[in-house]
């Protein structure tokens, strides 16, 4: 297992790994906390939802396309069914409020990658810096909603 080339490696995690871990931890706690708070607001009826709780069971057996059409027709009355980031315009409704925590959990990795790029560049680790930039772009594309076209 021993490799003479590995002598430059230390047992401690690298600077960028520690930075990534610190940011990931903060984002994870914030996301989970936000999700629990907004779900409590939703379930206990503190803020009214777009789709009443008593009607939610009518929708969850539909495919996602039919579901979006149905809730738009019955509850939201938007020009188009709410795909992509449309949920962000519905945050005053407690069911859509839950998407804040979900988006934070799904988005923190993008920030972690972006944060370690300067450290990698400072170390002259261009290959990894380029891979991190590519990952940020890929995840940002997925998050952008540009891919939310088509479907069933």
């Amino acid at each position: 297992m021993t490799d003479s080339k590995c002598s430059c490696v230390t047992k401690e995690a690298s600077e960028e790994q520690m930075l990534y871990a610190a940011l990931l931890e903060k984002g994870m706690y914030a996301g989970i906390g936000l999700l629990f708070i907004t779900f409590a607001i939703y379930v206990f009826g503190i803020v009214s939802p777009a789709v009443p709780l008593s009607e939610i069971a009518k929708y969850w057996s539909m495919d996602s396309h039919t579901y979006l059409e149905a809730i738009n027709q019955n509850a939201l009355h938007l020009p188009h069914p709410p795909t992509g980031w449309a949920w962000a315009t519905l945050l005053h409704k407690s069911d859509f409020m839950n998407f804040l925590g979900i988006a934070l959990l799904a988005g923190i990795t993008i920030f972690c990658y972006a944060a370690i790029i300067p450290t990698l560049l400072k170390k002259g680790d261009k290959a990894y810096a380029i891979m991190c930039v590519a990952e940020v772009l890929i995840l940002a594309l997925a998050a952008s909603g540009l891919l939310a076209v088509g479907g069933h």
């Binding site: 939610i56 579901y67 979006l68 980031w85 995840l139 998050a143 909603g145 939310a148």
Partner: peptide
């Protein structure tokens, strides 16, 4: 998994495949 599932989760989220009453 925190990276792989992030990218796929965004696609599902943007396509309206997330119901908080199931997720939470």
């Amino acid at each position: 998994l925190s990276i792989t599932d992030t990218s796929a989760a965004w696609v599902y989220l943007n396509k309206g495949c997330v119901i908080p009453m199931i997720v939470v």
